[in-house]
Simulated assay, not measured.
Amino acid sequence: MKVTLLQGDITRQATDAVVNAANSSLMGGGGVDGAIHRRGGPGILAECRQLRASRYDQGLPTGEAVATTAGDLPARWVIHTVGPIHSVREDRSELLVSCYRESLRVADELGARSVAFPAISAGSFGWPMEDAARIALGTVRSVVTQVEDVRFVLFDTAAYQTFQQVLQGLGPTDEEIAALLAEQPSERWERLFLLYDGLTEADLQVSWGSEEGPYSEPLNAVISMLVGLKITVVFDWPAWRAFPGGNGLDQAPVADAARLATTLIRGERFSDGTIHAAIQNGTFHAILRRLRHWYEHERQ
């Protein structure tokens, strides 16, 4: 997926779909919602009224998404989603995440390959722009979708610069990380798995009082090979909680295994026992298992 940031008017995007930061009534409003209805013409409102008379007689729930015609817009469809109002007393971030996930799900159902998003909830709904950008970009990049081109169309310079800074801080994409891993020589991968397969239960034990360090020489060799494969050039991943004990990593992109390895190895610098805990709860083994599967079946 290609993610692009633009400053401008979302109603002028000739994408397959544009996402409308709608209100629950689907009857139009201010900001992006009003602009899309004004430029898109009465066809959008007519379909929204049909939706209110059938599927959404109580309004479109927060976090959900639904599509209509794009009317006179250069896009083919409008995907309407209702963002949450920001609250300092309640964490509503999952609802904002859902707006992006559901919008992409609807886009896949439509067969859309290009989608333009606004900064959902970051206007009159009061969501802080930096956090809105982090949620938007992080969610879109993590969703499995057939959409190939995602554009975030920001109305003003401040919003554009904030999204730009957050995007730069997120580090490389899944595709970029996979390409980085593929650049490493086969000999290094084979050596890593040979060393890993040779680990015994004793090698995985920790000796905190040892002068040689807490980890055994064979385990240190495996860790050194991970570093040597340049996995740890990727960023420290804040979403490591997505794979508690390594669960789910087998079905995730190999980039997530690289990110998780990075988090553990860098985390060890600041907290003794990070890798030991990962061994005990299965995360360490899940990382090596996912890397091996990628090497043997997915590497190009």
Rank of each mutant, 00 (worst) to 15 (best):
M1S: 12
V3Q: 12
T4R: 14
G8K: 13
T11L: 02
Q13K: 11
A17G: 02
A17K: 01
V18H: 11
A22Q: 00
N23G: 03
S25W: 05
S25R: 07
S25Q: 01
L26N: 04
M27D: 10
G31H: 06
D33C: 11
D33L: 02
G34R: 12
I36M: 12
R39E: 14
G41E: 06
P42F: 04
I44P: 02
L45T: 01
E47L: 03
A53W: 14
S54V: 08
L60Q: 06
P61A: 04
P61G: 01
G63C: 08
T68R: 05
T69W: 13
V78W: 10
I79N: 03
P84Y: 07
I85Q: 11
S87I: 09
E90H: 12
D91T: 05
S93C: 06
S93F: 00
C99G: 12
Y100F: 10
S103C: 05
V106D: 05
S114A: 06
A119H: 00
S121Y: 05
A122N: 02
W127K: 08
D131L: 14
A132I: 06
A132E: 08
L137F: 07
T139K: 03
V140R: 15
V147K: 04
D149P: 00
R151C: 13
F152H: 04
F152G: 14
F155L: 11
Y160H: 15
Q165S: 15
L167P: 07
Q168E: 15
G169M: 11
P172Y: 11
E175W: 03
E175V: 10
A178S: 12
Q184W: 14
P185F: 07
E187P: 14
W189I: 14
W189A: 09
E201S: 12
G213T: 07
Y215S: 03
S216G: 00
E217S: 11
S224P: 01
L226K: 06
L226I: 14
L226D: 06
F235G: 15
D236H: 14
P238S: 03
A242H: 06
G248A: 08
L249K: 08
A252T: 03
V254H: 02
A261F: 05
T263R: 13
R269M: 06
R269F: 13
G273W: 08
H276F: 11
F284Q: 08
F284M: 06
H285Q: 13
I287R: 01
R289E: 05
W294Y: 10
E296V: 09
